[in-house]
């Protein structure tokens, strides 16, 4: 038997024995703090209320709204189609299939940004993908979508387009947006001009 074989065989056994001596290690499968900080600094996770309203109206199936407020708050008011995962239950086993998935954008929202963003950070640390936060939460939802304000006259056309979208969305979501047209029709007396009744033709022609 050649020496090369003996050397290689001993090496193999030695390396395999080394494996037995290795201490057990528990590897943290969470993302390192540097990477998390980089993700937190990236603002692209914030979706505007307008964008979300448009996606709800379009019945976009690739969006999942997650209300991170308490169950009482969720029951009293929430966005249409939203599911309720209170912040303190974020890590519960039963919610993981909802949060950890591909193909659907998970959008967290609360009254403001804070709780939704905390849920976002927790899930990001778990390495979940496609996570978003609704910018400004339900407060912004109310000021922008449910009760939109008329832009000043000097605003560019885009603002008026956005305003008319918000008004339409407000009606869609059952808000109290003024449903009148933008043209001011106050102060004009509309004169109703009635046509005079024609007298019936009498006699033959």
């Amino acid at each position: 038997m050649s020496k090369v074989y003996i050397i290689f065989a001993s090496l193999l056994i030695l390396v395999a024995f080394g494996l037995v001596l290795l201490p057990d290690t528990e590897h943290e499968d969470q993302i390192p703090p540097e990477a998390l900080l980089k993700e937190i600094m990236n603002q692209s996770r914030f979706l505007s209320a307008d964008l979300i309203a448009a996606r709800i109206i379009d019945e976009d199936p690739s969006i999942m709204l997650v209300d991170v407020r308490t169950a009482e708050a969720y029951n009293s008011y929430s966005l249409p189609g939203a599911i309720n995962i209170p912040l303190k239950e974020t890590l519960d086993e039963e919610w993981q299939p909802y949060l950890n998935q591909r193909g659907v954008d998970v959008v967290f929202f609360s009254n403001g940004d804070l709780f939704a963003d905390q849920a976002w950070i927790l899930c990001s640390r778990l390495g979940y993908k496609n996570l978003y936060v609704m910018e400004g939460g339900l407060n912004q939802w109310f000021t922008q979508i449910m009760q939109p304000t008329v832009p000043p006259d000097t605003s560019p056309n885009e603002d008026f387009d956005l305003y008319s979208f918000r008004k339409a969305a407000s009606i869609y979501f059952g808000g109290g947006a003024p449903a009148q047209s933008t043209q001011d029709i106050k102060g004009e007396n509309i004169q109703i001009i009635r046509r005079e009744k024609k007298t019936a033709t009498a006699g033959g022609c």
Partner: peptide, 11 residues
């Protein structure tokens, strides 16, 4: 343990 099994398997 997997490591022990691999060692025995190598032997």
């Amino acid at each position: 343990s997997s490591q022990l099994f691999i060692f025995l398997f190598t032997v």
